[in-house]
């Protein structure tokens, strides 16, 4: 920096330009990320710590937290299995329709979350044949946990697969061929060779998948039915409380979501710092 000030440094921008660019980025960051985050906690704690914990201990709030965790606990492992299977198939085998499968995996990213929820309503709603059959047999999917899980799984599907596919493609198939030539079975090869080769990328994918599963609003909102204490996840509960002018309650639940986001950010930073070279797509996120 000191040398750059002495004379014009031909390989970089002038100090003024640099200061302006960095300053702009910091102001933007403050305005759009830090201020809202601080506001969430400020609003949540407006009536003191007692009121904050009281709002969190409210039965509907607790139920929303339980439901969110339940949905995430089911949806994330499902996507780990689907994601591993899909990326294994795409990276290690060549078959017709591979590119189509790749585009399909990305579909949830490109489709509006509302549509992602609506497809389940159309499929299982009372005006669909399948929906009527389910209703006759007393199987509840919409406005219940199964619907929430389906919508969340759909929306969060790409996270694990997208993280694994580039890394697995880069690693190729020679490690697997080596294991097979040494007499390992397919399962042993997967368990002892393929999985350890992608473990950190998998952890990274699971982290992003979990964060999204917890925070998902749009798709879940469509299939939830908003039954308080039963089918409201945390983001939905925040909305309801806010609409009822129960600001402390709304921001208290929101602060829990914000805390989870901060933890996610921390773990993500550690993974990127420690195992960045083993995350094929660490530059993308």
């Amino acid at each position: 920096m000191a040398e750059a000030l002495k004379g014009r440094n031909p390989v970089t921008e002038g100090p003024l330009t640099r200061a302006a660019l960095i300053g702009l980025a910091i102001v933007f960051l403050l305005l759009f990320l830090i201020v809202p985050l601080v506001l969430v906690f400020a609003e949540a704690l407006r009536n003191g710590v007692g009121a904050y914990f009281e709002a969190l201990a409210e039965p509907d709030a607790l139920s929303a937290m339980r439901l969110t965790i339940t949905v995430a606990v089911i949806a994330v492992p499902l996507n780990v299995v689907f994601g591993l299977a899909a990326s294994w198939a795409i990276a290690k085998f060549s078959f017709r329709g591979k590119n189509l499968l790749l585009s399909l995996i990305d579909l949830p990213f490109s489709v509006s979350p509302v549509i992602s929820g609506l497809v389940w309503v159309l499929l299982f709603g009372s005006h669909a044949a399948l929906g009527r059959w389910l209703a006759e047999n007393d199987i509840q999917i919409l406005f219940a946990v199964p619907g929430l899980v389906l919508a969340t799984t759909f929306v969060t599907f790409p996270f694990v697969a997208r993280e694994l596919i580039p890394l697995m493609q880069e690693q190729g198939t020679t490690d697997e061929e080596a294991a097979l030539s040494l007499g390992a079975s397919g399962w042993q090869t997967f368990w002892h060779v393929t999985l350890p080769n992608v473990r950190w990328a998998l952890a990274y994918g699971v982290l992003l998948c979990t964060a999204r599963a917890i925070g998902e609003f749009g798709a879940v909102s469509v299939v939830s039915g908003h039954i308080r204490g039963q089918t409201n996840t945390m983001p939905l509960h925040v909305e309801i409380l806010y609409n009822e002018y129960s600001f402390v309650g709304a921001f208290a639940v929101a602060s829990v979501l914000a805390l989870l986001a901060l933890v996610t950010l921390g773990v993500k930073a550690v993974l990127e710092w420690r195992y960045g070279n083993q995350l094929a797509s660490s530059h993308r996120h």
Partner: peptide, 20 residues
């Protein structure tokens, strides 16, 4: 016979050692 059943020793160009 599959590669595992043929009892061959194969050394790959890139070595393909298990890195972990």
């Amino acid at each position: 016979l599959s590669v595992g059943e043929r009892r061959i020793g194969f050394a790959f160009q890139s070595y393909a050692l298990f890195r972990h």
